[in-house]
Nucleic acid binder design. Structure first.
Lengths: 347, 347
DNA sequence: TATTAGCACTCTTTTATTTCGAGTGCTAAC
DNA sequence: GTTAGCACTCGAAATAAAAGAGTGCTAATA
């Protein structure tokens, strides 16, 4: 689709030049610079006229009179939308770096976040896939000692959770064996959403005198699996924000880094991203568009990756508004592909 | 023991006043301030003479001529050593805050770090107990699917580790049962250190045709348990460093926060702390005394907590050199006690 | 002999003033 | 429609001046 901005080619070129230059330098861009670095062959005066127009249209702004222009959020938005149109791909040797140390999913993701941060020079986050609709693959109770049972739950994708349940009575081996059989035959292949009260009631019934234990265990299982319980989020490169004066100055650095430490706020970004219906691709939040107020001076680029069966996680990059969108989007796409392949091969 | 500084009472009072005042204000302390705020009833001139002496002795220093004095590392050291002598305790309602959300150890520790950070306004870290000498409580293999076995390992203190092992051949239920028996009878109650090659050889022998599996599994177990693999470290309040101008200014903030994100360096502090023989108590590293160079402008206070059986972890507080040592040490002691009790009750 | 008042001196911090230059908007000419 | 030219604006950097906090030293004092 062609984008519906009311700009002729020349204005567009000028706008793009302003943005690109500003991305590099971080300094307001003046008319002379543009007249020199485009092949439009226009004098600075002409450029000035066009810039005045662009400012009227809201695409650029002046920090103060007699300064050059910087892109407004609207300007960035147009730029990004234009970028989105040209789909490109280019595989780099990310995978190597990622697989090197990776054996389990959490390590892969941790590593991916780091690779991404180093690669882009921005702060990055990756959320582990939410397992809401993910299926139970295997569940096992084992007696640890007289009053403690450990429940190990393996989900599709080899995500492992465990939980220690304290029970009042000591259970014999046979009983535990029976409970395991019962749990596995009933629950294996089900998603968390599908395990409802009726099913639990039926299970309890079948468990007979041990219905209490089953209840406790199921509660524990549910609690353990529950995604909102603790959505794992891996981050890296938070200190990259110091590389951009416009972020490191004020207390914005503090706010951003705090968000990265507490992870509470990052979670909101994830939730927001996953809730978008057409989330196949990449989303860009510029300035105030971000779901999290403390990042209103940043841009946030997110992407969703799939593990099949409705399992999906989010990758996010947080940087200054003058982020190198082109590079970021390309890198993100690559990473998504890589993750897809790694996880599908692993399984 | 009385400390062996060569200071008379008056000098000591003056030094302490300088330090305390500086802790509060962060500004160099002048002679007039001291003459006013002590009950020594001395004029500023006299104080000045004493201060000149103290400076000669290396306890205080001037940032520049005609500024007040600030404590030197040596001055802090004396102050801290004096504090160490007066043992105090005071139980506050930390436990509530900590137990509220805590069900597993990692959550308790995470929460503890947070509570501590909020309580002190410094950056905090807690390392999960290293399980080097910790004993195996229970081990269980389960078949997840045709070619994958999950090994769940429970250590003393209910620390749970798991690992998926891929096997070439499909194993029958009976065989897995047998292997479980074998592993548990042989290994339960042993510490990681005690599991040596001879034992592994014997196990393999007993496993007969499945010796290969046993070997793989044991390797996995060893790898999983190995502490250097990944020492878990929980942190909180890294952004507290912004509260102290002397840390937030330069790039020191960046370095510290980076250390907190990467955790690599924090690990060194932990290792260092745990390697001290007389580590029962609290250790204070002032400025250059710290094991980690990037924290040379900070003070690091560490404490060791015990979970019995040689399992121990470290709690650390990182803040400016003008840290409120008194409060920190008191809080740390309380927290240690709390942790001890919580863990010993839980078990 | 220990303490103190007094004073000149030092060095940072703050504030005010100046200068410089990048960039603009406007006008008039091409 | 484009451009050269010019006066004007405003921030940033440079410079200068003033203020203040604190010291070290000397000489007087108890």
């Amino acid at each position: 689709m062609a984008l519906d901005h009311g700009l002729d080619n020349r204005k567009l070129t000028i706008l793009q030049t302003i943005i690109k230059t500003y991305l590099e330098t971080g300094e307001p861009v003046g008319s002379r610079t543009i007249s020199k670095y485009t092949d439009l062959n226009l004098s600075s005066a002409t450029i000035r006229n066009e810039m005045a127009d662009l400012e009227d249209l809201g695409y650029i702004m002046q920090p103060h009179t007699s300064a050059g222009r910087i892109p407004s959020d609207k300007g960035y938005r147009l730029y990004v939308d234009l970028l989105m149109e040209e789909k490109e791909q280019e595989v780099i040797e990310m995978r190597e770096a990622m697989l090197e140390k990776a054996d389990k999913m959490d390590k892969i993701l941790k590593q991916a976040a780091k690779v991404l941060a180093v690669n882009t020079n921005y702060a990055t986050m990756i959320s582990a896939p939410t397992i809401n609709r993910n299926k139970l693959k295997f569940i096992q109770l084992s007696q640890v000692d007289d009053h403690q049972i450990i429940a190990v739950i393996v989900m599709e994708g080899n995500i492992i959770k465990n939980k220690i349940v304290t029970v009042a009575e000591t259970l014999s081996n046979e009983i535990i064996l029976k409970l395991n059989m019962l749990l596995n035959t009933t629950l294996t292949g089900m998603s968390i959403e599908e395990i409802n009260l009726g099913m639990i009631a039926r299970l309890k019934e079948q468990a007979g005198i041990h219905s209490e234990v089953i209840g406790d265990v199921l509660d524990a299982v549910a609690a353990t699996i529950q995604l909102d319980n603790d959505m794992e989020i891996y981050t890296s490169g938070a200190t990259n924000v110091f590389k951009y004066p416009e972020l490191s100055d004020n207390q914005s650095a503090q706010e951003i880094i705090n968000a990265f430490e507490e992870k509470q706020l990052l979670q909101e970004i994830v939730t927001q991203t996953l809730s978008q219906e057409e989330n196949k691709g990449i989303q860009v939040y510029i300035g105030n568009e971000t779901p999290v107020q403390s990042m209103k001076d940043c841009s946030v680029v997110t992407a969703t990756y799939e593990l099949g069966e409705g399992m999906q996680g989010t990758i996010g990059i947080i940087g200054p508004k003058r982020m190198d969108y082109e590079h970021v989007m390309k890198t993100l796409k690559t990473l998504m592909t890589e993750l897809d392949e790694i996880f599908h091969k692993e399984e």
